[in-house]
């Protein structure tokens, strides 16, 4: 519907304000931020510490609520959703990748990847199949039974990405995804994220890293709770609007396959599994 034409953004923020009470002082983390992000975009959010990047990301992920303003996701107003409905939206539409991975140490790689499926009540047999495919997608088929303690930083983040993608979210939110990795591993992880973006997932990355910031198709600069810069530049793999269109025109379609073929990412990533009905109207 709304996203089909690629005109209406998947994410529409309208004058979002968020303040925190610190002692007897009200700290404004976000001041009237308005932002539209189109489906399939790769957006980097940069800015100094305390500029409101993380608050913005939490709001986008429905982990936090604005004091005022409206947040529309896929044309649906999600600002006032109750706790249960917000959890459902997170489960169905949003994937999270964190700087510190946040894998559960007692669960194996496969167990961690399966967690969102468990929460969604997916049957064990189907779970197993999907987890195997997700781990294969991030190149960790051989590590399914390893515990987080037995994996390297890069592997941990790839498990976390597989977990984030397990419900086929339309949006992937990454908070400093390479912040805890060395340069080379960071590049690998970023390549993986870009690959997912190529396949149609909206990717929003909060980062301090200029290199990552520069690779994004759209770079948002924040300062003091405000968006002070928003630049769209041709990224190495085409224009964001094009991807939005491709995404909007239907997943798994020829158009998407051709987009994948053009990408800089290494050969033939497996086609993404079909999305759940709820993930996109």
């Amino acid at each position: 519907m709304s996203a089909c034409g690629g005109v209406v953004g998947m994410i529409e923020l309208d004058r979002i304000t968020r303040g925190f009470q610190v002692g007897d002082q009200l700290v404004q983390a976000l001041r009237e931020v308005s932002l539209n992000i189109t489906a399939g975009e790769f957006v980097s959010i940069m800015g100094p510490s305390g500029s409101g990047k993380s608050t913005l990301l939490n709001l986008l992920g429905l982990l936090d609520r604005p004091n005022s303003g409206t947040y529309r996701l896929d044309g649906l107003d999600v600002t006032g959703l109750d706790e249960v409905a917000a959890a459902t939206v997170r489960r169905e539409k949003i994937g999270f990748v964190f700087q510190f991975f946040h894998l559960i140490p007692r669960l194996t790689a496969a167990g961690n990847v399966a967690l969102p499926l468990v929460l969604a009540g997916v049957a064990p047999s189907e779970r197993k199949e999907r987890v195997a495919r997700l781990l294969a997608d991030v190149g960790l088929s051989g590590r399914a039974d390893h515990l987080p303690a037995q994996l390297s930083g890069g592997q941990l983040q790839r498990v976390a990405i597989a977990r984030a993608m397990s419900m086929n979210p339309a949006i992937l939110l990454a908070d400093e995804p390479t912040g805890n990795l060395d340069r080379a591993t960071g590049r690998e992880v970023l390549a993986l994220l870009e690959d997912l973006n190529q396949r149609g997932t909206t990717l929003i990355v909060v980062t301090h890293d200029q290199e990552i910031g520069a690779r994004a198709g759209r770079r948002i600069l924040m300062e003091d709770g405000r968006v002070v810069g928003d630049s769209i530049s041709p990224s190495p793999s085409g224009v964001p609007q094009g991807r939005g269109f491709i995404r909007g025109s239907g997943r798994g379609s020829e158009a998407q396959t051709s987009a994948n073929a053009e990408s800089t990412v290494p050969p033939s990533p497996p086609a993404p599994p079909p999305r759940g009905e709820g993930s996109k109207p």
Partner: peptide, 16 residues
């Protein structure tokens, strides 16, 4: 705490 936060981020409602 972080595990609980994670579960919530992954879509677990408070009741779960």
């Amino acid at each position: 705490r972080s595990e609980i936060g994670l579960l919530k981020a992954l879509g677990a409602p408070a009741a779960s």
